[in-house]
Design a protein around this nucleic acid. Sequence first.
DNA 1: CGACTAGTTGAGTAAGCTCAAAGCCCGTGG
DNA 2: CCACGGGCTTTGAGCTTACTCAACTAGTCG
Lengths: 245, 245
Amino acid sequence: MDVLTRKLESFCPFDQQDRDLLASVVAESWEIGPDQDIIQEGETPEDVHLITSGFACRYKLLADGSRQIFAFLVPGDFCDLHVFILNQMDHSIGTLSRCTVVNIPRDRVIRLTEHPAIARALWWVTLVDEGTLREWLVNMGRRQAPERLGHFLCEILTRLNVVGLVTDNAFDFPVTQSELGDTMGLSAVHINRALQTLRSQNLIAFSRGRLTGLDLERLLAFSGFESNYLHLEPYRLKHQRPKLA
Amino acid sequence: MDVLTRKLESFCPFDQQDRDLLASVVAESWEIGPDQDIIQEGETPEDVHLITSGFACRYKLLADGSRQIFAFLVPGDFCDLHVFILNQMDHSIGTLSRCTVVNIPRDRVIRLTEHPAIARALWWVTLVDEGTLREWLVNMGRRQAPERLGHFLCEILTRLNVVGLVTDNAFDFPVTQSELGDTMGLSAVHINRALQTLRSQNLIAFSRGRLTGLDLERLLAFSGFESNYLHLEPYRLKHQRPKLA
DNA sequence: CGACTAGTTGAGTAAGCTCAAAGCCCGTGG
DNA sequence: CCACGGGCTTTGAGCTTACTCAACTAGTCG
């Protein structure tokens, strides 16, 4: 099953007609290399973009040249579902690794929303994105470096698990420490030290672009991670690896 | 005109029928004192709540007892428009000052959304809330205390101006430094020092619950504030105090 | 006037930053 | 197969920002 359907079904199950429709949407895709912009601040994209492989991020550049990343986009995530209302992007979206992207024309999305189950699921992803931003704000405001980084990794692990990209608590994560720094509001050097803290406690292993959770139970507790903000519904939690819930 | 209509019309103008409908919604309201919860994490509210006077905030409490505030709710703001999709609140909403609140039953909101202009406007407020969270994340991650606080004050000034609560760059702001600390991810003591920095540069005056912007031009520049994330449409900007845009 | 809350100040501490120098990994070309 | 180069990671040292704790001051309300 494709990543989009997998993700949306973590909210509610679809009937076969809806599944076929969703599958048809992700038919045509294109590739983009690492460190490229998919959309830039100020643009008004024609199509809605969907990531089907690789990692991308939402970010803004500041006047002093620093960058803040405030969302990670993983396979199954939409870039710009809000384009129907807001006329301009207020942030940019760039790739972190090589990515596969699907362009969905506006009218195609509108046709999708005529199916009530799909419309609700799209509404749901928007609200979960918002809940995730709130949790990130808590993370930035109230947790120090090692816990903050741990919390972020718990989230990524949970989200990748939903789309089937986690095996034995490990996943490909081709992201530099500098990019993690831009994400967590920390310097790259300090990310390095926070990673060492997590490693020394045997919570994670991370090298050569692959991350392994060594003791999820303790990692979740250490980071104060509660997955409720991701609003994974009981449906999914009961049927798929509840240990990450 | 009521604050809700004022706010929604900063996105697009309505016809008289829509205005009457909106005005009828805010007919009945109730009062709640300061430091009270309007909704708590885990609840499933029956009605949608709208603030029509006073200040409230979205927040989460952490295990160590600390609090992170990640949204300020000002008159015209909805508390829980997302309740139709997400079954549980993933955060709480509490008052900062005495507030006036309107309860709008679910089916009333559904009837509102049958009017296309209003439905689009409600969609818009949701997306602006999300854009605001993104900007807050940038603020937390990349700006230090005085600029961070200044940026936040610029935003509040802009948003209160939209609903007509700013006169001569001044507005009532009955918020403690401790609450500002919980908002900015800083200690109350450090908020005090950041305020002194802003005051010493003659950017603001703030005492007895009233805040005055002394030199908006310089305050915006100092804080790196760009209002684009609030997505105020040209309609409003041309007709109301463009200096804050 | 007294008590309470919020704001202010000072001093010492801790978290995180910058800069700079190694070290490691991996791809490329001889 | 090895040498080289480039990007990323790691380490150390000194500095800055922000924190905590504690004392003190200024309003406010009974």
